[in-house]
Design a protein around this nucleic acid. Structure first.
Lengths: 156, 156
DNA sequence: CTACGAGTTGGAGCCGACTCTAGATCAAGT
DNA sequence: ACTTGATCTAGAGTCGGCTCCAACTCGTAG
C-alpha cells in the first residue's frame, strides 16, 4: 500500500477516478486541472499522485453538483497559490452553502413523495380508485419565485 | 380564497408554477401532462386547477432530479388509471430511494468540503502557505466504482 | 520488421432540458 | 379601426457535459 507510484497513465487514472479517458482529456482542455499534466516521452500524459488526488476532489465537487466553470475557477485560484486563498476559501464556503440548501430541498421533496406513496399504498390496499389529491397544504407561494437557478459562477 | 377559478391561461400558470410559458408548451409536447389541456375558443390553452397541481408535482420531481422521460412514464401510468397503479407506486418508491441515496451522497460531499474549509481556514489563520493535503483518510475505494450514473427510465 | 494495443490530437456529434424566433391569430381597450 | 399584448404553431438554437471518431505515434513482443 506504500506504493506511492510516481506517474500513472491516463488509463490508470481513469480506472482509479472513475472518469473515462475521454473525460480526463476533456477536463484538461477545460482547464479543470490544478497543474498542467506532465508529459512523458512521446507526449503522453503522466499523472502524479497529486493530480489523482485533485481529480478525486473534482469528482466529489461534480457529484455535489458543482458545474465545471466553478471548478475551473477553483483550479485557477489554486494555481495562484497564496494570492487566491481568501477567495478560494470563500468559494468553498459558497459551495458548502449550496450543497446544504440542496440537501434541504431534496429532503423536502422526499417528504412530499413519501406522503404520496403513503396515500397510494393505502388506496391500493383498500381497492379504491381515482386520482389522488396529492399536493400537501398549499405552500403559500402565490408567484414571484424563481424556479431555482442552481449554482452560478462567473464566466471563465 | 374560495376562488377555485375554472381555467387559467398559460401565462397565469407560468406565474404560479415558476415555469416559463415556453416550458409549459414544451412539457405538453413531451407528454409530461397527465391529461391533455383543454382549449378555449381560438385554440388557447385553458388549464384546470388539477393541471396546475400536476405541474407543481412535476416541478417537485424535476427539482428532485427526476428526468423528463421518467416523469412522462409517470404521467402515462396516471393516464392509465387503475391499471397502472401498482407500477406507479413502484416508480414512486424507486424515486424515493433515488432521492434518499442522493441525499446521502450530498451529505458525504458536505462533510468533505467542510473538512477542507476547516483546513484552509486554519492555515490562513496561522499564515502558513502551500498546498493543502486534502483528501480525508483514504476511503478505501481503490477502483472499480462507477461514477454514479443517475437515474434511468425506459425510452419513451 | 511488423503487428498490436494503448496513447495522442483536434474536432464532430449527442443528449437532456430548455429557450428563443418568426409569423399568424385573437381579445380587449381607446 | 387600430394598436397592444398575450397566445398560437413549428422549428431552430443554446448550453452543459460528455462521448466518439479519424488519423497518427509509441513501445513492446514475436
Amino acid at each position: 500500500m506504500a506504493e506511492t507510484n510516481q506517474g500513472l497513465s491516463i488509463g490508470q487514472v481513469a480506472e482509479r477516478t472513475g472518469l473515462s479517458v475521454h473525460t480526463l482529456r476533456f477536463y484538461e482542455r477545460e482547464g479543470i486541472l490544478a497543474a498542467p499534466v506532465r508529459r512523458g516521452p512521446g507526449g503522453r500524459r503522466v499523472y502524479s499522485d497529486g493530480d489523482v488526488e485533485w481529480l478525486h476532489l473534482c469528482v466529489n465537487l461534480r457529484s455535489a453538483g458543482m458545474p465545471l466553470p466553478a471548478i475551473r475557477q477553483y483550479a485557477e485560484l489554486v494555481r495562484q497559490g497564496a494570492d487566491g486563498e481568501e477567495h478560494l476559501l470563500a468559494l468553498l464556503r459558497q459551495h458548502r452553502d449550496q450543497v446544504t440548501t440542496e440537501i434541504e430541498q431534496l429532503t423536502e421533496s422526499l417528504g412530499l413523495i413519501t406522503r404520496k406513496i403513503g396515500a397510494y399504498a393505502e388506496r391500493l390496499a383498500r381497492g379504491v380508485t381515482g386520482p389522488v389529491r396529492c399536493t400537501p397544504p398549499p405552500t403559500g407561494r402565490p408567484s414571484g419565485e424563481e424556479p431555482r437557478r442552481s449554482w452560478r459562477a462567473g464566466p471563465a
